[in-house]
Design a binder for these strands. Sequence first.
DNA 1: TATTCCCGCCAAGGG
DNA 2: CCCTTGGCGGGAATA
Length: 362
Amino acid sequence: MALPLPSPSPAASGSTTYCRKQKSLGLLCSNFLSLYNRDGVETVGLDEAAARLGVERRRIYDIVNVLESVGVLVRKAKNTYYWKGMGAIPKALEQLKISDDDEDERFSNHSASFQDKVDLDSMHKASGSFKSENRKEKSLGLLTKNFLKLFLCTTSDMLSLEDAAKILLGDARNPSLTRTKVRRLYDIANVLSSMNFIEKIHHPETRKPAFRWLGMKGQTDSEMGTAHALVHKESKKRTFGTELTNICFKRNKLVSPIDVDIIEDIKPLHPQRECAPIKCNTDRCSSDQVPERFGPPAPVCIPKSCDEESNEVKKSRDWESLASTYRPQYHNQALRDLFVHYMDAWKSWYSEVAEMDPIQVI
DNA sequence: TATTCCCGCCAAGGG
DNA sequence: CCCTTGGCGGGAATA
């Protein structure tokens, strides 16, 4: 099936400019959301999603897993998910703040207060033996939840993935483990970013890249929400009549014709153009007509050009009035403890593992 | 060079 | 045993 050719010479003819950004999980997530976030959708087929979005199934699993962690999707059956929508997010987050690792089929006998649990689970002695149950605990979904908890149960809203990895990992000493964890966190961070949960920034002092929690602020006011809703209504209409896809380039070349087949009528246009804009098919999605090219203002935004990472127009979008139902409750005893727990762990690991300047946890 | 993170191999899981 | 899931880390693209 897949050509085993390693294709060692990237430069070669090089005309088929491959653009990483167009293949990002973040963009895929945006497209996914645009595709399903509309009335009438109540179930999502993974195969269908993969085909319509023009990506391999493997990638769908990635975003589906984090979307599930946030409540947008709920597993229905093999290959099928229930679409819960953006409206399910507030409740899901609220639950994250409270519950210990919920839903995991095996309940903990050790009735330790969840502060012990939360990430002692994932923390669980990587140094020791590898159990098979181990797999679940390393899932993207769980990692997503724990990553979110870091923000939800903490006052610190800035965090580097490296730190997050060390905190969520039991063993901060193992650089290899950490590296892998960080890779996963990048995946997660990308989709969370595309949903505006977080935002990438550079730490004021350290200069180090990090992520800042955006949560659902700025939309707290019901009036505000309404206003936004109105504004978005328009762009949405335009967007939703659209079929989206990630353009199919392999790392160094175009996708094989077979793949293109699967993607029904989605073909890469302007192969040699660097970062060709996403294509929109207008055939099946009824009502409004849309331009064949895609504009920036829509929920799904693609940087006009790769090298020119313009200040994205990514504004607070979609989950408009989610906030109206959301209300923070910081005054929770247990959460307090959790917070302390995290910070202690973080600090101690930091002093051990890093000899750089003593990070100050705000 | 350092950071980011896509790709797809291949093993675990479910039927 | 076959097909769905999805951990994992090499290494290429970007900053």
